[in-house]
Amino acid sequence: MAFPIHRPRRLRKNENIRRLVRETKLSIDDLIYPLFIEDGKNIKTEIPSMPGIYRYSLDKLDEELKEIIDLNIPAVLLFGIPSYKDEIGSDTWNEEGIIQKAIKYIKDKYPELYVITDVCFCEYTEHGHCGVLCCNDVDNDKTLENTKKQVISHAKAGADMVAPSGMMDGVVKVIREALDSEGFVDIPIMSYSAKYASSYYGPFRDAAESAPAFGDRRTYQMDPANRREALKEVALDLEEGADIVMVKPALAYLDIISDVKNNFNVPVAAYNVSGEYSMIKAAGKLGWIDEKKVIFETLTSIKRAGADIIITYHAKEVAKEIG
């Protein structure tokens, strides 16, 4: 019997040919780096469950920002840790709030860096939920009223993009109308369209001090068992005016990323979340995996699934390797 004509191994012979035929390639242009900004002074605190990731006060932020720019990472996603919390998260629309000050600081000193703000309330409320409570659950429509005030304050401070993450029904429409009515028609919305009630968020809640004081977030974040619902959520957000849609988390939801990419002709972001980051770091520290290779394999899988943008705490590590 003649040997088969086709030998796929021909195109795996050495690294040069593998590079030439590689279907999916990570780029620095794909990356957004999350930053945790804390109210106060002289703060650079490593997050115990996220080795290598820190909370910074503004006076300690320059070294980090300069490194991000030197690595050519195009954008950062800001999360604030305020000094004041209340029942409704009113510091989210304080013109002198930590995120507002951070936006102004970054855009004044590093105007070339694209600044995206997370739009939510969990870090700013005493109860740790993502909005105004009514009968121990988040009141959707009352929360939307406060969301309008939050995004306008971010826009006035100089944010380049806003990213609502609370999974409130109708939030994109409310934000788009609020921005447009104030003349911020050019500010895009990256919506956390398919954000699941995931157990992978644990380390983030340590980082942002945003763990709920009671219960969980399953009444507003998506059930991890649901697939078709993600397409419904994305379709609604696009109808309301979203410019970019996001799937969060990423690694356990590659099928959702693929579904969204295959069904909608818009940029798709994926959030490689804190738990995904921390698992790799923990296994790498123990010597159970080749940490660098697993980072690249993980992020490549996210891009291969269809993500155009990857929000990841590994951004600096990746940029150092491929820059």
Rank of each mutant, 00 (worst) to 15 (best):
M1R: 11
M1I: 06
I5Q: 10
H6R: 11
H6F: 11
R9V: 07
R12Q: 10
R19L: 12
R19E: 11
K25C: 02
K25M: 06
L26H: 09
L35E: 05
F36K: 10
E38K: 15
I43W: 14
S49T: 15
G52E: 04
Y56D: 07
L61S: 08
E63Y: 03
I69R: 01
D70S: 14
D70I: 00
I73M: 05
P74I: 03
F79S: 13
I81H: 14
P82I: 13
Y84Q: 12
D86M: 10
I88T: 13
G89T: 07
T92F: 02
T92P: 01
W93F: 15
N94R: 11
N94F: 02
D108N: 15
E112Q: 15
L113Y: 04
V119L: 03
V119Q: 01
V119R: 02
F121C: 03
C122E: 13
G128V: 11
H129A: 07
G131M: 07
V132A: 03
C135S: 15
D141W: 01
N146K: 11
N146H: 14
T147V: 12
K148Q: 09
V151H: 05
V151D: 08
S153L: 02
S153N: 10
H154P: 00
K156Y: 06
A157C: 04
A159P: 08
M167C: 15
K173C: 00
R176H: 07
L179Y: 14
I187A: 00
S193D: 04
S193E: 03
A194I: 05
Y196T: 06
Y196I: 09
A197K: 05
S198H: 08
F204W: 09
D206T: 15
A208D: 10
P212Y: 09
D216R: 05
R217P: 09
R228Q: 08
E229L: 13
L231V: 07
K232G: 00
V234N: 02
A235V: 00
L236F: 02
E240W: 02
E240I: 07
G241A: 12
I244P: 13
V245Q: 06
V247R: 02
A250F: 02
A252R: 03
A252Y: 10
Y253P: 03
L254V: 05
L254H: 00
D255K: 07
I257S: 02
V260N: 03
K261E: 03
N265W: 00
V266Q: 05
N272C: 14
V273N: 08
S274A: 15
Y277A: 13
S278E: 11
I280Q: 11
K281T: 08
K281N: 02
K285T: 06
G287R: 03
I289Q: 12
D290C: 12
K292F: 00
K292D: 14
K293Y: 08
E297H: 10
T300G: 03
I302D: 08
R304E: 13
R304N: 10
H314K: 01
E317I: 08
A319F: 00
K320R: 15
E321F: 02
G323Y: 03
